[in-house]
Structure formats: C-alpha cells, structure tokens
Design a protein around this nucleic acid. Structure first.
Lengths: 154, 154
DNA sequence: CCATAAACGTTCGCCGCACTAACGAATGTA
DNA sequence: TACATTCGTTAGTGCGGCGAACGTTTATGG
C-alpha cells in the first residue's frame, strides 16, 4: 500500500501502522534494489551469497530455508549466479537428489561488493533516525518478526 | 524478502533492517488482508472508503493521490465498490473529464465494518509491543515515511 | 480562433514477489 | 516390496507497483 502518501493522505489512513509499515518497507526495498541494480544484482542474490558465505556449501532447499526464498524461485536465482560464475552446483554424492551449491572466489568477491551496497542502503534508510532510535527501531522490528513469522514450532 | 526467517537464517541476514521491515510488512499485510477477506474486501477498498468519508466526494485521480493507489489500478477498485453499491460514479458537470465519486449509505456502513476489522488487525500486529513501544514504533515509522516518500516538493 | 499541451479515465502489459501444484528422480520407512 | 517423503524443477496464480498509450476534455498561448 504505498506509492504516494503525500500531504493529501487523510489522517485516518496515515495513522494506520500497517500502512506505515508497508510504506517504509517499500522505500527500503527501493533503496536496496536501486543500489544493487548498479551491479545487476537483486536482493535474493545477496541473500544467497551471504547464506553460503556464512554457513558454507549447502543444498538448494537448505538455502531456501536460510534465506526465505521459495525453493521454486531459488532455481532461477541460482541459475543467474551460476551463469555469472559466482557459485557452482555439483551433484551431492551422498544424496543424489541434492545439489551442493558452493561459492567460487568470484562469488566471495561479489559478496563483498554487494555487502557494501546493501550496508549503504541501510544507512540511508535509517538516516532520519538517531543512533538510539535506530537500535530501538530494529529491536522492535525483530520483536514483531519473532512473533508474527511462521516458525517450525509456531 | 520474507517467507521463512526461522532459526536457520544467518545472523548477517537477520540483522538487516530492510529485511526485518519487509518481514514485518508482509506479516501486517497478511493480518489485514486475512481479516478483510472475511468480508470479501481488500485494503484498497478500505483506503478508498476512508478517503471518501474523510474528505467527501472526489475525482478518481484525487482518490489516487489520497490513497496511494495508482490511477490505473484505481479503476478496478472503484468498479468493484460501485458494483457492490458502496459508491457511485457521476460525471462531473464542471469538468467533464472527471468522475465525481461519492459514498452511498451502504458504503458508509461498510466502512464501519471494515474499519473494525482493520483496527483489530493493527492491534494484533502490535500485540507483542508494550503501549509505549507501540507509540514509539509508529513514530519512528512515520519519520521514515516522511523522509523517504516522494512528495510534491521532494 | 486554432494549435498544442496537459489532465482525466481507461486499457493493456510488464516485472517482482509470495505461494501452490505437480512431476520425475532419489531416498527413507513399513 | 510398497509407500511416503525429499529434492530440484517447471508452470502457473494472484497481487501490488508501475509505465505506455489512447480517446476525451479542458486549459494555454500565439
């Protein structure tokens, strides 16, 4: 719910938390995507690269769980990253249903670049807030996520 | 960036504000839409009804500005609301390019029902936060929106 | 007065994201 | 051996955000 909440927006709409949330999320997405577009990347690419760097080679479904990308959408993301030489898919010898996805050196380098872009976007996003406010804001967001996200146990 | 940030998600991803924002926004949207679905409504319907109730009859492009719905998408929303008898479109005699969109009594009644649903969804959304935290959270969100939304003057 | 620009409602279409369904291949379990 | 489950993959749905273009109507300005 997002495009143009300028001054014309009625109070009763402007005060709705879910609308504010949607607006802020849309703005954040824009900041991130615009920056990543300069490197022909999207946020999924970044998420996958981080997940691989953080926890080492993994199967596609594992990456799906770690990043939140649906496994059906993961295919295309991995195709793109593999085509660009940032990772490789090898059949898993111990379970031949699986692919083992591993970062290449080029992939690590790219992660560093994307990380800088994403970090910059976060800073721009939180720029209007004081350091204390940023911390608090992130804390509250984490609380909402913890409560409202579907988790293994519920 | 959202579906399944369970415990498997790497720290480096979980700490990214734009991701937390996207997750919270997705959850909020779900809460709102699920409730509205019980009345066969969607958030746009609610937004348009509020805008009409708040500022009186308006043209479609004005509604577009007030609610944030693109004018190309507004057409379908108004069709649905008009088909259900919640508003009427009349040609504007003073400017024959425009339609004057007005609430019907049924529209006002519907707004009241939807408003209750939306309000309940907001409460469920903010439930994990203390009253003080809710206020602060909304304040910070408003700050971000004010800064990062495209406005007439920029 | 006439040309040109702008706004309005509308249709069509693109893209990204969340999500479901199904299928063959491989694996685990009864 | 039969059955269910997992994995990678393809295809498709629905919604929201967004741009292009078109006919109609109104405003602008030589």
């Amino acid at each position: 719910m997002s495009p143009a909440p300028d001054d014309a927006t009625p109070e009763r709409l402007r005060a709705v938390p879910s609308r504010l949330l949607a607006g802020a999320a849309a703005a954040a997405d824009r900041l991130v995507n615009d920056r990543l577009a300069a490197e022909d990347a999207r946020k999924w690419h970044f998420a996958v690269l981080v997940a691989l760097a953080e926890t080492g080679p993994a199967s596609q479904s594992e990456l799906s769980r770690r990043t939140g990308v649906y496994r059906s959408d993961m295919v295309a993301v991995l195709n793109e990253l593999a085509d660009a030489g940032f990772l490789v898919r090898d059949p898993d010898p111990v379970d031949r249903r699986r692919n083992v996805v591993s970062l290449t050196p080029a992939g690590r380098a790219r992660l560093q670049r994307l990380d800088a872009l994403v970090t910059a976007a976060q800073q721009e996003l939180l720029d209007p807030l004081s350091p204390a406010e940023r911390t608090e804001f992130v804390r509250l967001l984490a609380l909402l996520n913890a409560r409202h996200r579907p988790s293994p146990e519920g």
